[in-house]
């Protein structure tokens, strides 16, 4: 492991904590998700700092940031962009939508119409956009952080299971700890801190880190364990069976987590660590459940499955 990269990861977490108080684990998980090349879904009540969270990450990672607020009337074209006829050059010109950024915050995803949701999710999966028959590649790295409100209301559109599956992880930020919360309500300085943040990781070093993560060793024993997890999820009625894609995501995320833990091999502990986040949105057969219930389910699956 490159000492330089190692250092920058530590700096990343430390810097981020200046803005987001007391959320080290969540930061690490989000960072892990980013490094694994997946997309993150945050489900939480308004006002816990979802947007700040996303902005901090974007700033520290030196990524171009855009925020899309999903509403009923948001159309796919608002998201992807339009071709406009330029009369002076008598040519069509692409006005790119907000999706053409490296870091996208899709706010209140479940308030958008299914059509718009699908447009985003397609872009997430294929990392490219098709506009009027023209295929345009999305920038790299491309990371979507979507948020959604936990309470299902009339007028919201739940994402179907197949589309939820495209998010690698689902997490909540949660209320801050008492000590931090006092700090938070007393001083309103985190916005200033956010402005003062400087990029810690360059796209080159991110690439380098991703390559290093690729070389993390995954033993047969571990793969067997992951398979047992998948199998058990399919065998029991309380769970919705996990797809092979979920299995692939588990291994990817576990590798990244092992890297963050400064190990060159993956342990079942890594899998157990990231599992509640990776499968929270895939394991529950009932959509009306809260994320805590989902994560409890994930833990039940862990407790049920033999490690060795």
């Amino acid at each position: 492991m490159d000492a330089n990269n190692n250092h920058s990861i530590t700096t990343f977490i430390n810097q981020a904590q200046k803005v987001i108080l007391g959320k080290e684990k969540e930061l690490k998980i989000a960072f892990c998700c980013f490094l694994s090349g997946g997309h993150l879904l945050i489900e939480d009540v308004p006002g816990v700092g979802k947007t700040t969270f996303a902005k901090t990450l974007a700033k520290l990672l030196d990524l171009s940031f855009s925020r899309i607020q999903f509403t009923n009337d948001l159309m796919p074209s608002d998201l992807l962009g339009v071709q406009i006829f330029n009369s002076t050059e008598s040519k069509f010109k692409l006005i790119p939508g907000p999706i053409f950024h490296q870091f996208i915050l899709a706010d209140e995803l479940n308030r958008g119409t299914p059509k718009t949701q699908s447009a985003l999710l397609e872009a997430m999966e294929e990392k490219q956009v098709t506009l009027d028959g023209q295929t345009i590649k999305l920038p790299f790295p491309f990371f979507v952080l979507a948020t959604q409100n936990p309470r299902s209301q009339i007028g919201t559109h739940h994402l179907p299971e197949s589309q939820l599956d495209r998010f690698m992880m689902k997490m909540k930020i949660g209320y801050p700890d008492a000590a931090f919360e006092i700090n938070l309500i007393a001083r309103d300085e985190h916005l200033e801190n956010l402005l003062q943040l400087t990029a810690v990781l360059s796209p080159e070093s991110i690439n380098q880190i991703k390559n290093e993560i690729e070389s993390i060793k995954v033993s047969d024993e571990l793969l067997k364990y992951v398979r047992r997890l998948l199998e058990n999820s399919r065998l029991h009625e309380n769970f919705l069976g996990l797809s092979p894609r979920a299995g692939r995501d588990i291994v990817k995320a576990a590798k990244t987590w092992a890297y963050l833990e400064k190990r060159t091999y993956v342990l079942p502990d890594d899998v157990q660590m990231i599992l509640p986040f990776v499968i929270a949105h895939r394991i529950s057969p009932f959509q009306s459940q809260t994320i805590e219930q989902d994560q409890d389910l994930a833990r039940a699956l862990v407790n049920l499955t033999h490690v060795d």
């Binding site: 502990d269 157990q272 407790n303 049920l304 499955t305 490690v307």
Partner: peptide, 22 residues
């Protein structure tokens, strides 16, 4: 490893199925 687990069990420490080695 199984012998080790058995030994621990005799000492009153039983491994849960979901518990990792660490």
């Amino acid at each position: 490893y199984q012998r080790f687990l058995k030994k621990m069990k005799r000492l009153g420490l039983e491994k849960h199925p979901g518990e990792t080695a660490l």
